[in-house]
Simulated assay, not measured.
Amino acid sequence: MAQPDPTTAQATLAALRDRAERGDPGAVEELIDLAVELGDMSELRRLADAGNPTATDELIQLAAEKGDLGELRRLSDGGNATAADQLIELATEQDNLDELRRLAAHGNTTAAEQLGELTAE
């Protein structure tokens, strides 16, 4: 799918935000879909931080695809188990022992197991 014109996309995002703020649930769904299409992590983050679980899920998926450890860490540290799982997976793929150690030190047993496997090799 071709990327929409940036000016048009921003205008559409603004219109959808306005509709969503007025309580239109369809606009929220459209806003999430467009943000995903555009790869707009800041819009997804705004919606996720406002408590939208679909936006949170999409943000996690996009952050994992982009290799954004910082975003996954933020969500994981906020208690999101899916983000923690994705963070562990990404840190393992990148051989990021420091991140796995940090997670293990905070009691994440999966991170501790992955760390053990990576350091045993």
Rank of each mutant, 00 (worst) to 15 (best):
N52F: 03
G67S: 08
D49Y: 08
N80Y: 09
A81S: 10
T54V: 11
D57V: 05
D49V: 01
N80V: 05
L59H: 00
Q61C: 07
L44I: 10
E37K: 13
A55N: 01
S42E: 15
L38H: 12
A64F: 15
L87A: 04
M41D: 08
D57N: 08
G51I: 02
A91S: 11
D57E: 11
D68G: 13
G67I: 08
L59N: 00
A83S: 06
R73K: 15
G51A: 03
T82M: 09
G39T: 09
G51L: 02
D40Y: 14
D40I: 10
L38A: 12
T54D: 10
S42G: 05
E43C: 11
L34F: 07
D33T: 12
P53E: 15
T54L: 06
E65S: 14
L38T: 15
P53M: 05
D49A: 09
A83M: 06
D57G: 12
P53Y: 04
I60W: 02
A83Q: 02
G70Y: 07
A55H: 00
A48G: 07
N52Q: 07
T56C: 04
L72W: 04
P53G: 04
E37V: 11
D40F: 13
A35M: 07
P53I: 06
A63K: 02
E71W: 04
A50E: 15
D68Q: 12
L72V: 02
D33R: 14
S76G: 15
K66T: 08
D68N: 15
E65L: 14
D77E: 15
